[in-house]
Design a binder for these strands. Structure first.
Length: 860
RNA sequence: GCCCGGGUGGCGGAAUGGUAUACGCAUCGGACUUAAAAUCCGUGACCUGUAAGGGUGUGUGGGUUCGAGUCCCACCCCGGGCACCA
């Protein structure tokens, strides 16, 4: 079954065993099994035109080693791969070439599949998924319908980047310094109708769930910061012009209400026009216009340098003391957070202090700073001062107590409430693009919607609507039976020119008679079919963002062919969620947060049995170019795995990627280093086989190995296994090298020892391990053999090198029985030729004895 | 500015508070060879000394400890994230 090459001819060996595994379906997970299950998942790639790079190969090699190891340890392992194949580059390619993005995408997938196979990864190809496959995105659309039904999807006007020259909407990453990435044309903000998912409804659960997952702390912290929970109060300020109602503000420092000397509204705040007095009208208007013209980025970077704002001419009344405070507008207050309005407390807030100084507004300290405090605004803890009026007094109370008392008072007077606020915003879920999942939504009139509602039990509690030119449109979902809604072919992949996706140009698809009961559609140009279920409708032209398909793919892998559900309940129960999820830290927030959100919604719907999708997460590092900077085409420092495989073979590449350093580290590629691991594999080959390709003559079937070698073998089994479990592949490889160096120095070695070593090597370098295993007469395939069991008794040392120190300095050492007593060890040390001189003429103050390790003699 | 992660030979890196530099690369010397490649053996932080040895060394400065790369405090540098979120 093995090849017959005499040398280590990896070009022959590696494809041979790859074919062998493929034909045997060697890595197919068992559907039901008495074995424990293990699900190890990689973040699936976007199949770009550039092909797989070594960065992918790094993470995938790590999980492959673990998957192969776990199989050998008797686990039923699920290790799948697929393609996150919707996305911008394919669409841009389509615009350029006029070919359907699907064809380019499929070409790229073919290339990725070839590269991944060439790396010898033990993926189960029968479970491959492709997010652009209608059989897959049918369920992406289905999940969207569940969100829609639950009232978690709505439509809103949101600002997006629009490039007039290109007639298209651009993604944030396509805009560089206010210019389009392609062509360098100016871009502007434009409000367009967008789908938005109510992820904020899950803010608290998304925060809570982080407590129960085994993730890197830094990633948990990033998600916590992104969700940005803060606790405080919403306070109602009456306006002097009572007819205008109240002004609500959010504050985390209700204890400082007495220090409020002015109010600030975001320039976009809806009350601004009503609050603006005639005398201030022109100033306010021009300030609002100036703010609106700025992008978020400009607004933040410019405003961070210098504060600005305008007085509206109006006043509000502070509920705690009746004080009359002026109302300003300023762009340092953001409409998107809290209520879009704040009470300004310059004495206890640095931003407010800066603003107050600029416009000569009063500053009143209400928290006593420490005596040595020298700064401006004091944001620390301390006793309240100047904070009493009527039946409310905070004076003397520290911050926490003062907050509590204020909130209680506000609630009693109905002037405010305790409130929790999040930085997290709802998720802008639509793109004005062709190459994405179409929304399973049609737009109908209010009258038609009411008619449909009678036929459809699956509509949200409140209809999703948007108003355009005074006409209200209602969003009517396709019935589930009508899924998938596939993309129509288009003449041109160029945007419509109105900011809508290219789909808006496909009139026959867009303008339809729609059967509300079964989702059937015919072009509106044809006569209306008979029956009350047929309504005049216009399809949604937005498509979903690339995140959509990757939000749930880990579930589809459990049961990828299922036509009736995203996965069967049996599969969801048996496989549970991934035991380990490995991918780059660039997805620390968005992908991982979005996927958690969808999972929690599915959990609440009873679709999935657990509340968190990724129990354990690990971020692999980044492989830098030889020059120590990020690999990029423009720098010409990209390493293509295909080239390395050609010159050294996959096993060498895999081993090298793992030997480079800790999996999580950022590390530069070193072409010289790869020679080292290749030499190691050559050495393994030579120790196993002679020059004629037969078993090496030093291999014996009768003689036993020297005890040191047997001990080292067992140490290697233990160390390698432990390190694989901890994803510390670099040190496990070092241990294998130590072992082979010892074999090389041994004149004779038993066949059994070498076969055992090959089992240890197999997860790392599976092709050479299979080849040598077969040639040395191992039974079956090494990939199917069990992980060797080490003999713990052999690892016990009877003698140990005890280190002698004098005053903490290493002065000598000696091999001694592990059970030696302190006194006996001291006797030895005292007379040790290297130690004795350091004791001469000194008196021993103290002896520290750590059995098996050290004897430290402290002398005067 | 705030929150993380990290600074160890010429290089990648190793090290439950207990011999700092495992393993690999590079270097230099040697063996084998007509020669080269491959392979093998040795060398491999700095200062001092003929040597044995002694001293100093894990970004900098302090501290805790019998003993610190590891723990604590302050600072410097590099990388990542967030950034007017009231």
């Amino acid at each position: 079954m093995a090849t017959h090459c005499k040398d280590y001819d990896f070009r022959q060996i590696e494809p041979h065993w790859q074919t062998f595994w493929q034909e045997k379906h060697a890595f197919r997970a068992e559907k039901s099994s008495t074995k424990p299950k293990f699900y190890v998942l990689d973040m699936f790639p976007y199949p770009s035109g550039a092909g797989l790079h070594v960065g992918h190969a790094e993470g995938y090699t790590g999980t492959d080693i673990l998957a192969r190891y776990k199989r050998a340890r008797g686990f039923n392992v699920l290790h799948p791969i697929g393609w996150d194949a919707f996305g911008l580059p394919a669409e841009q390619h389509a615009v350029k070439t006029g070919t359907h993005p699907a064809s380019n995408t499929q070409n790229n997938i073919v290339n990725y599949r070839r590269q991944i196979r060439a790396l010898g990864f033990s993926y189960e190809w029968e479970r491959e998924v492709d997010t652009t496959d209608p059989k897959y995105f049918r369920w992406t659309q289905w999940i969207f319908l569940q969100l829609f039904k639950k009232g978690l999807a709505y439509v809103d006007e949101r600002p997006v980047w629009w490039c007039p020259e290109l007639c298209t909407v651009l993604a944030n990453e396509e805009v560089i310094d206010g210019k389009s990435e392609v062509g360098g044309f100016p871009v502007e903000r434009r409000n367009l109708r967008q789908w938005v998912l109510r992820i904020t409804a899950y803010a608290e659960q998304l925060l809570d769930g982080l407590k129960e997952v085994d993730w890197p702390d830094s990633t948990k912290r990033m998600q916590e910061a992104w969700i940005g929970r803060s606790e405080g109060a919403e306070v109602r300020f009456k306006l002097e012009a009572a007819a205008l109602g109240d002004l609500n503000i959010f504050t985390t420092r209700p204890d400082t209400l007495f220090g409020c000397t002015y109010m600030v509204l975001a320039p976009e705040h809806p009350l601004v026009p009503a609050l603006t007095k005639d005398a201030q009208h022109s100033a306010v208007e021009s300030y609002r216009k100036a703010t609106a013209a700025k992008s978020d980025v400009e607004r933040m970077s410019e405003a961070a340098k210098e504060k600005s704002g305008v007085f509206t001419g109006s006043y509000a009344i502070n509920p705690v003391n009746g004080a009359r405070v002026p109302v300003w507008i300023a762009d340092y207050v953001l409409m998107g957070y809290g209520t879009g309005a704040i009470m300004a407390v310059p004495a206890q807030d640095e931003r407010d202090w800066e603003f107050a100084k600029l416009y000569a507004l009063p500053i009143l300290r209400t928290v006593q700073p420490p005596a040595d405090f020298t700064g401006d605004a004091y944001t620390g803890d301390g006793p309240a001062i100047n904070s009493a009026h009527g039946d409310l007094s905070l004076n003397g109370l520290h911050v926490a107590a003062a907050k509590a008392r204020t909130i209680a008072w506000l609630e009693a007077k109905q002037a405010g409430t305790h409130r929790i606020n999040y930085k997290l915003r709802d998720w802008l879920f639509s793109r004005q693009r062709y190459w994405g999942e179409p929304f399973p939504i049609v737009w109908v009139s209010e009258v038609d919607y009411r008619q449909a509602a009678a036929l459809r039990p699956d509509l949200p509690a409140a209809p999703v609507t948007y108003v355009e030119g005074g006409v209200t449109h209602c969003a009517l979902p396709l019935p589930e039976m009508a899924l998938p809604l596939v993309l129509p072919d288009v003449q041109s992949y160029l945007p419509s020119g109105t900011g809508e996706s290219p789909l808006a140009n496909v009139t026959e698809w867009l303008e339809i008679w729609f059967n509300a009961e079964n989702g059937a559609a015919i072009p509106a140009s044809q006569p209306r079919p008979a029956g009350a279920a047929w309504l005049r409708a216009r399809r949604e032209t937005n498509t979903m963002p690339q995140w959509a398909g990757s939000c749930w793919y880990y579930l589809r892998f459990l049961d990828p062919q299922n036509p009736n559900a995203l996965a069967s309940q049996a599969a969801l129960q048996y496989w549970d969620v991934p035991d380990l999820y490995v991918g780059g830290s660039e997805h620390a927030v968005l992908h991982l947060l979005y996927a958690r959100f969808w999972h929690k919604v599915l959990y609440d719907l009873g679709v999935v049995p657990q509340a968190e999708p990724f129990k354990k997460l690990f971020h692999h590092g980044i492989i830098l170019g030889e020059d120590g900077v990020t690999m990029s085409k423009s720098r010409g420092n990209v390493v293509n795995p295909d080239d390395i495989i050609k010159s050294y073979g996959t096993d060498t590449l895999r081993l090298y990627l793992m030997f480079l350093g800790p999996l999580e580290a950022m590390k530069p590629w070193n072409p010289k280093g790869i020679e080292g691991v290749h030499r190691f594999l050559q050495k393994v080959w030579r120790e196993c086989l002679g020059e004629d390709g037969g078993a090496n003559l030093k291999i014996s079937d009768t003689e036993s190995d020297p005890p040191e070698l047997i001990k080292l073998l067992h140490e290697t089994i233990k160390k390698t296994g432990d390190d694989i479990e901890d994803l510390r592949f670099n040190t496990s490889i070092a241990q294998m090298m130590i072992f082979m160096n010892a074999v090389q120095k041994t004149p004779q070695v038993s066949r059994r020892t070498l076969l055992t070593f090959l089992q240890v090597l197999a997860p790392f370098a599976p092709h050479i391990a299979e080849e040598l295993w077969a040639r040395l007469g191992g039974s079956g395939s090494v990939s199917e053999s069990c992980w060797p069991v080490y003999d713990a008794d052999l690892l016990v040392n009877t003698m140990v090198k005890l280190v002698f120190q004098v005053n903490g300095k290493h002065r000598g050492d000696q091999l001694l029985p592990v059970s030696i007593t302190q006194d006996a060890a001291f006797e030895v040390a005292k007379n040790h030729e290297r130690v004795a001189p350091h004791l001469l003429g000194k008196s021993v103050q103290r002896i520290i004895f750590v059995p098996r390790k050290i004897l430290n003699i402290v002398v005067s």
